[in-house]
Write a protein that binds this DNA or RNA. Structure first.
Lengths: 344, 344
DNA sequence: TCAATTCATGGTAGCGCTACCAATACTTCC
DNA sequence: GGAAGTATTGGTAGCGCTACCATGAATTGA
């Protein structure tokens, strides 16, 4: 019977390499995966044959035979939110020296979509899974617990990790920014939030805790929307907040986009920053420090979160799960001109 | 001999489904891939068995058997550049109704890295490849020509597509922005550019063509750096440009980040925009229209480029390659306050 | 009516690779 | 010197799926 057409219209296979090098196929396989188990001389012969033929192993065949794909499954809620873009970059960069592929999924902030993608990812038997947040649905959590591979929850810390976690406390971040504004003298500090995913909710909770502790909380100070965040939306939220509460003297913004929108609106409406209105953002993107006035923000370590997630997962794959399963990378309050009320 | 451990510690296989449904394995395979070729009654039985077992086909086995993985390979130069983030989002969204996976690669603007990733991607036998730009190395081009799957070059248009193309002319974009500034009365218009990848180079060429046509070109007006773009860098480039050429009355910025940095620096240095300095950006991100003053920019259709790339690739996979292999999605000049010299 | 087609289904043989075991040489240690 | 390792290499049998062909039933057409 004539053999089925070769996969790649003639792409060399491991058998071709073996034939050319005059060894068994399995030895080629070993030479590529565990070179130290193959003698120096054969290793060279094989390498030469590989180079000559331009052989690249088929990851699909490899995954099928070894019951494990060299894939990191990564689920993020958004591809265009720069926070996640940087996390993803950290993940890619940390993996670039290995043969692991990255399988990226966009959950669009939906728990159900996360479940669906998890099913799809799991069908590939990934080597590790990285998921965003700590609010997985019960079904998703179950899938992750029985995934049979390391799982890292990123962006947040919390109790009860599925396996491992790396992130920081959004509650503490929200509280720190708010406390700073209270300390420098702001009193009627509004909260502006978009999308209001779980992490935004926790920042809001941190804001509220700080305001209540200072006896300053008023529900009318809070302005939120489920609409995705944007600079335009920041402007609109600020206008709404001001209309609702003209005595506002500061705003803690859920993220830097919103803060930028507020800053521009202040310029446009000739509202003095930081004198009349103080502004604090969240995430501390590059533009915050260049803005005029520069904007106070909470610096978060996105790239490092991605990097550490990979480090932890690889350690677990090597059988050395870190002692401490929850890694808190913290955050940094960056005080800048936009809240410098005392006046510099 | 005892069978090898099952891949998924007991994940159901197509044979399990076949047994439960009382049909042959191949019929299950068909029911899932070409339901119209299986009778209604069997299809239902099979679907029931699939649901009961929670069967999800193994994409690796599928790829191995069918010599084609349901994967779109996508190569972009950056993950954090919002332009590409939006393109990638367009690609993901267009593919979300299918079972195609996306394999994303970050070339870091390096041709050699692109070649390497292409090799890796090709080893999976992807269904289609989407690559950024039109400046592939000779080796990469060869790999793409013999890839045996549809190839779409995105972001730019140009002659001699490898297979298909969707994008716009960066030269024309740069020229349009510059001409606009000339028309409204700016004369000593600087060019500020970061990274200076091929697309930036072509925008610069467009700028230069416009300036030369108006008899206004002066090489000292051009300030560029190979450093990656950022808002901070925009400020720094502007300071340099101004130091070099104090008579500058406008700047065409290679992208919006740079433009934002310029805008902030103008605020800080109390330089009137658009009166003393006019500013134009490129890409037209949301913040440009909210900025104060709002910033003129070239609106590009990133998301749509991603979407169309998928549409074209799928058409080609279905055997109906579009008549016109190069799709120019154009751009839009958005005139805003930052170049409104006549004064509104 | 019966060959010729079409339709629905199934069996077999791989896809390219690696887990598992076996076999052979080469050491090491009493 | 011989038993018992210890490297080094290879053979066999799949991993889970689908391409290819074969089969039998239903339908068509003259």
């Amino acid at each position: 019977m004539k053999p089925r057409a070769r996969r790649g219209g003639g792409r060399p296979t491991i058998a071709d390499v073996a034939r050319l090098a005059g060894v068994g196929a399995i030895t080629v396989s070993r030479a590529l995966r565990e070179p130290e188990r193959v003698s120096e001389s054969l290793r060279q012969q094989i390498q030469q044959a590989v180079d000559e033929l331009g052989y690249v192993p088929d990851p699909n065949a490899r995954a099928l035979a070894s019951a494990r794909a060299e894939v990191f499954g990564v689920l993020v809620p958004s591809l265009t939110n720069n926070v996640f873009a940087e996390v993803v970059r950290g993940i890619y960069d940390s993996l670039s020296d290995s043969s692991f592929r990255v399988q990226l999924g966009n959950t669009h902030y939906s728990g159900l979509e996360e479940e669906r993608l998890l099913q799809v990812f799991l069908s590939q038997r990934p080597s590790a899974l990285i998921v965003s947040g700590i609010d997985q649905t019960a079904a998703a959590r179950k899938l992750l617990e029985t995934a049979g591979c390391p799982v890292v929850q990123i962006m947040e810390t919390g109790p009860d990790p599925i396996d491992m976690m790396v992130g920081f406390s959004h509650f503490d971040g929200g509280r720190a920014a708010t406390n700073h504004m209270i300390e420098v003298g702001y009193r009627r500090i509004g909260f502006l939030g978009a999308r209001m995913d779980p992490r935004s909710q926790r920042r809001l909770a941190g804001y509220r805790a700080a305001m209540e502790a200072a006896g300053l909380f008023d529900p009318r100070l809070v302005t939120t929307t489920p609409v995705p965040s944007s600079v335009t939306l920041g402007r609109d939220l600020f206008r709404d907040a001001l209309a609702k509460m003209p005595s506002l003297d500061g705003v803690f913004c859920n993220n830097d986009d919103i803060a930028l929108g507020v800053l521009f609106e202040c310029h446009r409406a000739s509202i003095a920053v930081p004198q009349t209105i103080g502004i604090s953002g969240f995430n501390d993107f590059d533009m915050m420090q260049v803005a005029f006035p520069s904007v106070t923000s909470i610096r978060t370590h996105r790239y490092e979160i991605g990097r550490q997630a990979v480090v932890m997962a690889r350690a677990a794959m090597a059988g050395t799960r870190p002692e401490n399963r929850v890694l808190d990378l913290g955050f940094e309050l960056k005080r800048r001109e936009s809240t410098d009320r005392a006046g510099g």
